[in-house]
Design a binder for these strands. Structure first.
Lengths: 168, 168
DNA sequence: AATATATTTCAATTTATTTTGAAATTACAA
DNA sequence: TTGTAATTTCAAAATAAATTGAAATATATT
């Protein structure tokens, strides 16, 4: 396979995977393209390579910077902006874990804690089932929350080692 | 908070969380509603409670059964079908991990392995960056793949214990 | 300050996804 | 069987999400 084809396939696949996980396809493609580029790129470069509009590039780059996955580079004497991505996939994973935890998991943890306090009417099967299920979900969500917290802080090799032990 | 309000809030929140993770909102709401119901329910029940059409219920129930999260109950002498959900959230998480791994991660692992074999042109920065980044992503994706595999097989308490050690 | 270049914004449009609802099919009871 | 209740299917409609492109804004250069 040629490098160009390989790049295209990767950008394409990364976009598809992203949509399956609730992330905008184009945003993922821009990120993917920056990850495999040795140089920082301009808006024009991204427009040309991914065949998308200026506005689209601008908005998605802003989101990617909000996610802490892409950064801006200003070159002295040059007016236009250059963008580059963190290339260490483990750092990327940690950053994504951190953001999703904050944006999505935290509100759910909060709600579940409230729902756990809804009084149980003894003998009422509906009420008991609700309580038990919420308890069960709350345990798992907190486990996931803790897992993301661990991932956020840990070294890749530490997680790998733990995993190997777990699978043994 | 009243039980009815609590149920509504949970169903609503679960639907929202689901969309953020690439899962159809209504599918998640049906699942949530079945999880907190003590009795198996009919299509009619779900149509009424969630205010959605028969076709919508039918299609999403099929998907939920494909995901292995909802089951059908046939009552002797009754023509209509009753549906119920697995209520143990840890089992649900394991099942979801299993399915997403198979459906989404496996194809990516396969592609990354192909891309790792794209020959590197020594001295070509673009080619080298591509190779290094793919290697890095491949390691992390395989780690995630292994983690899902571990989750799939492990007991909740085992994961919890591991996590506690990891965070210490 | 004026001009040129670059970036952002957002209403309008396009595209993708979800939902409906009624016809077609299936499955059970009599 | 036959009649009927229940379910599924899927084209069309509704809704949601992403994208465009040009005007507005910002920033640098002369």
């Amino acid at each position: 396979m040629e490098l160009q084809e390989a790049k295209d396939r990767f950008v394409q696949a990364w976009g598809t995977l992203a949509t399956q996980w609730g992330i905008n396809r184009t945003m993922a493609q821009i990120h993917a393209f920056l990850m495999i580029s040795s140089e920082a790129l301009t808006t024009e470069d991204l427009m040309a390579q991914l065949q998308i509009s200026r506005g689209n590039v601008s908005m998605n780059l802003r989101d990617l910077m909000d996610w802490g996955l892409v950064f801006k580079e200003l070159r002295p004497g040059e007016r236009k902006e250059y963008f580059f991505a963190e290339k260490d996939a483990w750092k990327v994973a940690k950053q994504v874990a951190k953001e999703r935890r904050k944006r999505e998991l935290e509100p759910v943890v909060k709600l579940l804690d409230e729902l756990k306090n809804v009084p149980v009417r003894a003998g009422d099967r509906e009420s008991e089932t609700f309580h038990n299920t919420i308890e069960s979900i709350s345990r798992v969500v907190n486990l996931a929350d803790g897992a993301l917290d661990a991932v956020m802080k840990a070294e890749e090799s530490l997680i790998l080692g733990t995993l190997i032990k777990l699978l043994r």
